[in-house]
Simulated scan of single mutants.
Amino acid sequence: MSQKPTHQYFAPCPRGLEPALAEELSSLGAGGIKAVDGGVHFNGDWLMGAKANLWSRTASRVLWRVGDGQYRTDQDIYALARNTEWDWLFDVKRTIRVQMTANKKAPIQSVEFVTLRVKDAVCDRFRDTCGERPSVDRANPDVRIHGFLDGTRCTLYVDFSGEPLFKRGWRVATNEAPIRENLAAGILMLAGWTPEQTLLDPMCGSGTFLLEAAMMALNIAPGLKRSFGFEKLKTFHRIKWQALLDEARTAAQPPHPLAIYGSDKYGDALKAARANLEHAGLADCVQLKQVDLMEVSAPTETGVLVANPPYGVRLDELDKLAEMYPQIGAVLKKKFSGWRAYFFTADPALAKLIRLSASKRTVLFNGALECRLFEYKMVAGSNRKDSAQADQP
């Protein structure tokens, strides 16, 4: 029996941001919200899925659940995929890519083999219904099909997003290892930053925190300058989508100077940040300055400082960081009384060497890399620690 999809969605996100994403989706009007490790399940009509793509700042993708069933063998998975009405979802002329993942409980020997079985099932379905098979494009497909296997169930999804949602469409310049946009937005949310508060990134690199903050302050939908996977499906409602875009454009504030500041020691990094801000039309919203972190001063009496400091791999890098971290603590203590400071890092040494008492630690994942977001409330004379009392990660 064929399976015609209902509007059940799953939005994956960087691990640690599930509560922030659940709150976002709730504010957008999603129903059936259930946060799980790695993302959030929700439901709603077609427009809800489109709205989540347009407005979510923390989701990595929005996946539309199109098939679900129990399995014991790869033949069961093939049958599930064969009975899913792919021909109702998209035209045979669209190129496809299938990507399957499985958790440790899945009783399969090869994810690659199961991926091929699902691909064959999709193509066989089209051959049966229209006499043609869709072509596969691994690099830039029109339709991305995702599948997930646990110990007993296989769930199939069509990617409603296409390219990952952290690809906002504004980045034209980058540094060596930029933080992804949705993770940066989530960190700002976890920091409790709001546009009424001053924001400073003293190690701004290509400006990801600054751009995300400016778009949040101006209520600019993060997906306003890009296209999405759902636009290539037969279920695409062009008139409804255009109305949603018009509404988002009307809701956005015109660019104007904001209390958002960025600085960096290196001119090349500031050049990249400035290029990205200009490409996004936000150059007048953010104040940039080339200055070493140790020379930075607070631009206002209170505010939020957020930074993604470098972390080392080679011994010489580790030695430099071991010198830098205590200096960061000294600068915060001396110049940022009344501020909240947030450092996102994969380096466990920061917590020990900065010599300040973290008021909060949040575990986040940057891809597969486990990281920490440390919060420091800078109250004069109250949170300095000596090295013997150094914080534990």
Results as ranks from 00 to 15, higher is better:
Asp316Gly: 01
Met189Val: 00
Gly49Arg: 02
Met378His: 05
Ala30Leu: 04
Pro255Gln: 13
Asp319Met: 10
Val114Ser: 10
Phe126Val: 05
Lys167His: 14
Met378Phe: 04
Lys240Ser: 14
Gly31Ser: 14
Phe336Lys: 13
Trp170Arg: 09
Ser263Lys: 12
Tyr376Ala: 06
Ser110Asn: 14
Ala368Trp: 03
Val306Pro: 02
Ile354Lys: 14
Ser135Val: 13
Gln99Tyr: 04
Leu211Thr: 08
Leu165Val: 05
Glu24Gln: 01
Gln75Ala: 15
Phe42Ile: 05
Val118Cys: 11
Ala358Val: 09
Gly69Leu: 15
Phe374Pro: 00
Phe236Met: 08
Ala351His: 10
Ala273Lys: 09
Asp347Phe: 09
Arg144Met: 10
Arg125Asp: 00
Pro107Phe: 02
Phe113Ser: 09
Ala252Gln: 10
Thr208Asn: 06
Thr58Lys: 07
Ile328His: 02
Glu176Tyr: 06
Ala307Thr: 11
Tyr78Gly: 08
Gln197Ala: 12
Gly329Leu: 02
Val331Glu: 06
Asp264Leu: 11
Leu364Phe: 01
Gly16Ile: 05
Thr6His: 15
Ala11Trp: 01
Leu224His: 02
Leu353Asp: 10
Gln70Ile: 14
Arg65Trp: 03
Pro254Tyr: 09
Asp37Ser: 14
Lys335Leu: 00
Glu247Cys: 08
Phe228Pro: 04
Lys51Arg: 14
Asp201Asn: 15
Gln3Pro: 00
Ala380Asn: 03
Leu63Met: 03
Arg94Gly: 06
Cys154Gln: 04
Glu181Met: 07
Ala251Trp: 09
Val313Gly: 07
Ser60Cys: 05
Gln3Ser: 11
Phe344His: 02
Leu353Ile: 03
Asp128Phe: 09
Phe90Leu: 08
Thr101Arg: 11
Tyr71Trp: 03
His7Lys: 04
